[in-house]
Amino acid sequence: MLKISCPWCFERSEEEFVFGGPSHLARPNNNDEISDKKWAEYLFMRDNVKGVSLERWGHVHGCGQWFNMARDSVSHKIHFTYKMGEQPPKNWQSICGGDDE
């Protein structure tokens, strides 16, 4: 069972949260000229990182807010969370124990 620190509610049980895909995916805004391949890249293709990555989570059975989380998919260790619209620290990969992805 993970204990997740929601930036709004602090530490709560994993059961109150939902995983919502990778963070910082930018939706292409050139809809008219974008190729099907590029569109598929955005919609479906995933890094599926073995190691630390940035994820979006929603506190759906709590405050209802979405936020970002740096989490390790092997150890399940949660390194830090930060609010929607914020960027992670520039050196987040070294903060999380090096570039092991």
Partner: peptide, 18 residues
């Protein structure tokens, strides 16, 4: 489950979440 890891070695991505 490790398809994404192997795909990364070969330089492409897959529509998969493990």
């Amino acid at each position: 489950g490790h398809s994404g890891v192997l795909a990364e070695m070969a330089g492409f991505r897959l529509p998969i979440t493990s």
